[in-house]
């Protein structure tokens, strides 16, 4: 008993000072992280702040963060100043149709690549994955000519149809995920007389659902934020996706220095993904972290 107490004391004495040192370091680190976080968020807050300012406040020196007269007028004005609504619906059409159908084809392929036996499995997979190495600028010109020859330029189809054929990153990720699922489940299902489609949607899909959801969200965000694809194919204002619409807002209204209007439109373009991120942050962050460690 005495020995134990003595031991405890001697053990306690040293870590105490170290603990204290650690706590000071933690405090310093916390301060630096907070300053960093301010730098990360300040531009976005300023964006929002600009959007609710009157024109005089925008050019006030020194700048005001919380304007005296807060006005949300620009948020109602933006809908008539440009095709913002059709931009949102176009972006939604592209993102929803691609992710829903593309996720189905991708997860089906991932199932085949990880759990089924067929000739050339690895070579086909490597071949598909090698396509990641081809930079988009190399493909964009011929793709444009191909789509224009079938009359798809200035429609959403060139942005939608390729996505139907799946996404190799998603296939790769789901295939990795499936390796943790024992093949014996599938063998058992086969013996029970399940068809391969049934195995997929009754057993595999429910099991990989969390991974599919995270990948789907990431893909959705990627499409929502895409700019190069839409700028190549879409000319008519009412055909454009949201990102192009706000870029055009920027190009047309900056000359009149109507920054509140531009920032309001940009906030609208940014907000949906921000909400999605806040809601699904756990899944998104986990999924990113895993992809980095595995890749």
């Amino acid at each position: 008993m005495e020995v134990a107490v003595a031991n405890k004391k001697s053990v306690k004495a040293e870590p105490m000072s170290e603990k204290k040192k650690n706590r000071i370091t933690d405090a310093v680190v916390f301060v630096f992280l907070s300053i960093g976080a301010i730098f990360m968020v300040a531009p976005l807050l300023w964006m929002f702040s600009t959007s609710i300012k009157s024109r005089e406040d925008v050019f006030a020196l020194p700048p005001v963060w919380i304007p005296e007269t807060i006005s949300f007028a620009k948020y109602s004005e933006i809908w008539t100043m440009g095709p913002l609504l059709s931009g949102i619906s176009n972006s939604l059409i592209v993102a929803v149709s691609v992710t829903v159908i593309g996720t189905f084809t991708s997860s089906l392929a991932a199932f085949a690549f990880s759990k089924l036996h067929f000739k050339g499995k690895n070579n086909i997979f490597i071949m598909l994955f090698a396509s990641v190495m081809i930079p988009y600028p190399v493909l964009m010109i011929p793709q444009f000519i191909m789509f224009s020859s079938v009359g798809w330029v200035d429609t959403l189809l060139p942005l939608i149809v390729p996505g139907f054929f799946g996404n190799i990153f998603m296939i790769f990720f789901l295939r990795q995920y499936l390796t943790s699922i024992p093949t014996s489940i599938i063998e058992a299902a086969k013996i029970d007389g399940c068809s391969y489609f049934q195995i997929f949607y009754k057993i595999i899909f429910p099991l990989i659902k969390p991974a599919v959801a995270a990948q789907l969200i990431l893909w959705f965000m990627g499409i929502w934020n895409d700019y190069l694809g839409p700028i190549l194919y879409l000319n008519s204002p009412e055909k454009q996706t949201l990102q192009l619409v706000i870029a055009n807002f920027n190009a047309s209204y900056a000359i009149q220095s109507d920054y509140p209007l531009i920032m309001a439109a940009s906030v609208v373009a940014l907000l949906p993904m921000l909400i999605v991120f806040i809601v699904f942050q756990k899944q998104i962050i986990e999924s990113i972290a895993i992809s980095g460690v595995k890749g």
């Binding site: 531009p43 976005l44 300023w46 964006m47 965000m221 929502w224 934020n225 700019y227 990102q243 192009l244 706000i246 870029a247 807002f249 920027n250 531009i262 920032m263 940009s266 906030v267 373009a269 940014l270 993904m273 921000l274 999605v276 991120f277 998104i284």
Partner: peptide, 10 residues
């Protein structure tokens, strides 16, 4: 996660 177009405008 923010759109690169909106970020560029900002």
């Amino acid at each position: 996660i923010s759109s690169i177009a909106a970020i560029s405008i900002l």
